[in-house]
Amino acid sequence: MNEEKAIRVKGLKKTFKIKLKEKGLIGSIKGMFKTKYKKINAVNDISFEVDKGEMIAFIGPNGAGKSTTIKMLTGILYPDQGEIEVMGIDPRRKRKQLAYEIGTVFGQKEQLWMHLTPYDNFKFFGAIYDLDERVVEKRINELVELFEISEFINTPVRNLSLGQRIRCEIAASLIHKPKILFLDEPTIGLDPVVKENIRTFIKRMNKEYKTTIFLTSHDVGDIEKLCKRIIIVNHGEIVLDDSMDNLKYHYLNKKIVEAKMKEKINLDDEEGITILKDKGYNLKIEVDTTKRTVGDAIKLLDPDKIVDINISNVPLENIISDIYKSGN
């Protein structure tokens, strides 16, 4: 295995068999005698590599195969085909050995004991990873400082806010100093301020411990602010694997022009210019700079009638959404 690679995946496949049922009670009765199944290719022949210390976003629409892939990488699910190496370990064969190398946070599933305090939970996780008492104490102190959790370290988890809980979940998953951290929607349901805090903590962790971060999220802010590389999956296949800079660069040929006008103007779609929003005095247009210039668009609007104007890049959210829709 390449020493620099944290994750290596080749030709990974996973199929689920779903039971089909005709509608209504009669359908249920028929189903008792003859069951029909449908095969769903949740992950269909995907291959990629992740370098050590890299922060990578692994994203896609619901049902694209993100969680299934993470679950195969962490040993939760058995793949049907393909090769996986996480820190040089095959999760199928050496689950326990792998567990010492990785940390996992599922935003939708709690791993902490709700009735225990974060401190007791950290002690329990320390025991799970066979850490010596003194080592656990030292590690708890480090994590308390890194994630700023001293204020509620002795409050039962069930009494914590969602943001505080997620910080504790991430801290608990780091008790054994994992080399890779899998984060499955870590900021789900959090308010913008807490989201920003969590991102700061993740960045700090990556910087201080050189932890490889494998992130899935529907929040574009998480992806944009944390990751330098992005893999987009759809229908179980990788549709894009590129650096964040490249992704943005390719879409930079489109600009969004938002203008507030003195008086109403009539404007129609032209080649290279698309009207996105027309609310009388307020206009939002998209300019394809490979066909027309931004100057052309401003001329069309009539510069003398413009009260205010804003020219920006296409938001990453729209870029990703376009990729999801187009499929490649």
Partner: peptide, 12 residues
């Protein structure tokens, strides 16, 4: 309900 996940990812 998929609650085995937490135990599978632990080295025990």
């Amino acid at each position: 309900t998929g609650k085995l996940d937490a135990s599978i990812i632990q080295p025990k």
